[in-house]
Design a protein around this nucleic acid. Structure first.
Length: 429
RNA sequence: GUGAAAGUAGCUCAGUUGGUUAGAGCACUGGUUUGUGGUACCAGGGGUCGGGGGUUCGAAUCCCCUCUUUCACCCCA
């Protein structure tokens, strides 16, 4: 009976596994370059951990199960709650700022579509315990460091940046009541995906009075940070919040990534827990969904029973990223393929024991080496050596009777006969 | 959760108004080549035509259900 792979999951055959490792290794290298340390947590968590942050609706969007002890568990759909739990447990012992990263395997029970599967990998980097804007800038820079390492440029990707704090202060300055803010965020977040008149109608439902509503529409039209305050009576906090975002852009400029970054007031993020800088990374042509996103979340640790500790971070999934890199031709030739230092070919089965000895010695010397299990013609073995991307072939033939082998370099075709001991002595160098 | 399209060899796909034993290219295995690779030529293996049910003398082909894939919506941590 044939059993198919589960909906929305992938089988990582060697070529796909090589691609996955290429992405994950790049993420880890970039995080390490930027001073982040790796952590991981369990793939199973208590279901209620996700209900704390996102409410009950989340339950039908994740994979949950009951263990034999009757505990309600979930396969992690994100790692931030795990991070909050882990940090909270050791909050007083950890030196700050805490700069941690992880590449968790996550599952979400959604309908698969382009750039979204049910099982995927997500790079997460977070800075905890640093209120400084430099932390937000570093998170963005680290993501851009990675993206540039793949060959992407400012012509390919853009980071759209705004601030929850600024949006809140501006809305208040316009005359929106504080308790209305939370209900406005999801709608403002959706503005770009809605028809303009549908957006205005929905906004009218939330903010019936014409005065604040029209000012909200004007505010959301701002294309540059300087335009945000036009026609608004600025309060002190509102002014400060604009200046804060402005100094973030100064920092990003100083860090050499200004070309990638753009103010975009429509970046709100649907989630309630963001408190400051928010950003999303897109392909320039805007044909794909977001490559990643993040921002500042100052209350999350407290929600998970810890102290009020400031935090900022980002998540980037592997699905959209792989699609973009593929489209830009940045995978072919960059994803490493199987390769060998030596392929040991055996000319006659009489010499096979010596060939086995040689391949084992090569491996003990730290070289990647392979040989054919089956005695076939030398031509066939050379073909296999080529297919396995061997640099050199050690040919074990009649010369072995006088302790010598032929060594052939596949790229040039050059071949020399050398004493076995001399050959291995040469490997030390 | 809603809607649309698709599913034939490992992959990409042909397959006539329903008609004999379902094909091609690539890939794979072997050979031409018993001590020299990438090319070429020859041969071979591999299919319950996604699965189940129905209509029919006869189904890859028509109908229903189901699974999977793709795309869009909802949602997007």
């Amino acid at each position: 009976m044939k059993v198919p792979a589960v909906k929305g999951t992938r089988d990582f055959y060697p070529p796909l596994m090589a691609r996955r490792n290429y992405l994950v290794d790049g993420w880890k290298a970039a995080a390490n370059r930027n001073g982040f340390e790796e952590y991981d947590g369990p793939i199973l968590e208590y279901l209620k951990m996700y209900q704390i942050k996102s409410g009950d609706e989340i339950v039908d969007q994740l994979f949950s199960l009951q263990d034999r002890g009757g505990r309600d568990l979930a396969i992690r759909p994100e790692i931030t709650p795990t991070l909050a739990r882990m940090v909270n447990q050791q909050i007083n012992a950890l030196p700050r700022p805490i700069k941690w990263f992880s590449v968790p395997r996550l599952c979400r029970a959604e309908r698969p579509q382009k750039g979204r599967l049910r099982e995927f990998f997500q790079w997460n980097i977070d800075v905890i315990g640093a209120e400084d804007l430099l932390a937000d800038a570093e998170v963005i820079c680290c993501a851009l460091d990675y993206l540039q390492s793949t060959g992407l440029t400012a012509d390919d990707v853009v980071v759209r940046i705004s601030s929850r704090r600024m949006l809140a202060e501006m809305l208040k300055a316009i005359g929106v009541a504080e308790d209305q803010l939370e209900s406005l965020y999801p709608l403002l977040d959706k503005k770009g995906r809605m028809a303009p008149d549908a957006f205005e109608a929905a906004l009218g439902d939330l903010v019936p009075a014409a005065d604040p509503m029209n000012k909200i529409l004007d505010l959301m039209k701002a294309e540059r940070l300087e335009q945000v305050s036009e026609g608004v009576t600025m309060t002190g906090p509102a002014q400060a919040s604009v200046e804060e975002l402005s100094s973030l852009f100064d920092l990003l400029d100083r860090m050499g990534v200004a070309d990638f970054c753009r103010f975009d007031i429509s970046i709100v993020r649907g989630l309630a827990y963001y408190t400051g800088v928010v950003f999303e990374i897109y392909d320039r042509d805007c044909e794909l969904r977001a490559l990643g996103g993040g921002g500042r979340y100052d209350n999350l640790l407290k929600q998970f029973g810890g102290p009020q500790v400031t935090a900022t971070g980002l998540g980037m999934g592997d699905c959209v990223l792989a699609i973009l890199l593929e489209e830009k031709g940045l995978l072919a030739g960059r994803v490493p393929t199987r390769s060998l230092d030596y392929y040991v070919a055996c000319v006659d089965k009489r010499y096979f024991p010596q060939a086995v000895e040689i391949v084992a010695r090569l491996r003990r010397a730290g070289r990647r080496a392979n040989l054919s299990y089956r005695q076939t013609g030398l031509g066939k073995q050379l073909k296999q050596a080529s297919e396995q991307n061997a640099t050199e072939v050690v040919i074990v033939g009649a010369e072995i009777e006088s302790q010598r082998v032929a060594v052939k370099a596949l790229a040039s075709g050059e071949q020399r006969v050398v004493a076995v001991d001399q050959f291995f002595a040469g490997l030390q160098a």
